[in-house]
Amino acid sequence: MRLLQPVGAAFLAFLGAVGRLAMFAGQGVSHAFRPPFYGRLIGKQMVEIGYYSLPVVGMTTLFSGMVLALQSYTGFARFSAEGAVATVVVLSMTRELAPVLAGLMVAGRIGASIAAEIGTMRVTEQIDALTTLSTHPMKYLIAPRLIAGTTMLPVLVLIGDIIGVFGGYLVGVYKLDFNSTIYLERTIEYLETVDVVSGLVKAAVFGFIVALMGCYHGYNSKGGAQGVGRATTNAVVSASILILISNYFITELFFSK
């Protein structure tokens, strides 16, 4: 029986953490829909999360599209299916690679920065100061980041889709000698609305996860600089894992038979 005790304790601690996170998320979302709305702060976060992540997401998706074209060409050549390269690139980018890679890159860039900023505000009593100045920290700090994360990642992914397909086109046309018109035709021919929409839905969920994990770990950080460092690491790791887990379930939701 004693052997089971740590297992039980760990399970209870896990349930407790899930409950606290769910309550935090519920509060954050509820504040996001109730006035007052901090338009300036939401705009600032949108620029931070969306605009400043563009180079990272752009580079990632560009080279992913290029690699995908190269890999699928050499692989498909084994059974004479090279003509499917354009279709494979566009479906892979829109359904999977652009949302997941953008999600992971933004988790590293934005999740860490949100956790560090809010964590520092926590340990330097700036969050308590907000309360004493009649401002709800959930409304002022958390809600704008959740709104910006959820709305900006789909925009990034849409741009990433285009850049990724363009990367595949560059390799296909200039390296693999595909005819430009035929490559573009093949790109559009088998693409369905659901391919793009599923990727954008994933992006919105991933954006919410990244912002939520950054806010949650930062908001609950304690113990000075070490605590802020721990919050930053936890935010990135937990957001990355949750992105990969939720990716499976959203994919199943859209594409399972």
């Binding site: 330097t124 009593e125 100061a129 100045l133 401002t135």
Partner: peptide
């Protein structure tokens, strides 16, 4: 409240820190 470490909002300039309660509350 005056906090031990000041707890000034480091993302805002000094005047906005002082005016924060007037603007928000």
């Amino acid at each position: 409240m005056l906090f031990q470490g000041g707890a000034l909002f480091d993302s805002l300039p000094v005047w906005e820190n002082v005016a924060f309660g007037l603007i928000e509350a």
